[in-house]
Simulated assay, not measured.
Amino acid sequence: MGEFAILQWLIASTIFFVVPFWRICRRAGFKPGLSLLSLIPGGILVLLWIIAFAKWPSSPEEKKAIGN
């Protein structure tokens, strides 16, 4: 295994973590760029914390409140 194998693992892990978080953030109404936090060690925990406890901009409850 050479230097090229490490690069392949880095690209694969980036795709494995960033792409799903990108879609989650976009569907939840957050900026998709937040998914880049998953590249930082410990960033996945921070990202999950943000997604779990923040008010979601695209939440159906807020859309009902705006419509009434």
Rank of each mutant, 00 (worst) to 15 (best):
I50M: 10
K31P: 10
G33P: 03
S38C: 08
W9K: 06
F4I: 15
L7Y: 10
I51E: 06
G67H: 13
S35A: 10
A52V: 13
R26Q: 14
P57H: 06
I24E: 12
I51G: 00
P41R: 11
L7V: 11
R27N: 15
A5K: 02
P41K: 05
G29S: 07
L48A: 05
V46L: 15
L39N: 01
S38E: 08
P20H: 01
F16A: 13
A12Y: 10
L36K: 04
F30Y: 13
N68I: 09
W49D: 12
W56I: 12
S35T: 12
A28Y: 01
A65W: 01
I11E: 02
G42Y: 10
M1I: 02
M1Q: 11
G67E: 15
F21Y: 12
T14K: 02
W56G: 07
S38N: 01
L36C: 04
Q8A: 04
I40M: 06
F16D: 02
F17V: 05
S13P: 03
F4N: 07
G33A: 11
L48V: 13
L34G: 07
A54Y: 03
P57R: 02
I50G: 00
I51P: 04
K64H: 06
E3S: 14
R27D: 06
F16C: 00
V46S: 09
A52T: 11
A54N: 06
G42F: 13
I11H: 07
P20Q: 10
G67W: 01
I66A: 15
A65Q: 13
S35L: 04
S35I: 04
A65M: 08
F21W: 10
I24C: 14
G29Y: 03
I66E: 14
I11Y: 02
F30G: 01
L45R: 00
W49R: 08
I66K: 15
S13Q: 09
R26D: 13
F21H: 06
P41Y: 05
G2R: 01
I50W: 14
L10Y: 07
F21N: 05
F21V: 07
L34S: 05
L34T: 09
I6W: 12
G2V: 03
S58E: 12
K64F: 08
F53Y: 02
I40K: 03
V19Q: 07
N68H: 10
K63I: 10
E61R: 14
L37D: 08
I15V: 13
A5R: 06
L39S: 04
L34V: 09
W22D: 02
F16M: 15
I6P: 09
I15R: 03
A5L: 09
I66G: 04
R26P: 00
K55P: 10
A65L: 11
G33M: 06
I6L: 15
A52R: 14
S35M: 05
I51V: 14
L45E: 13
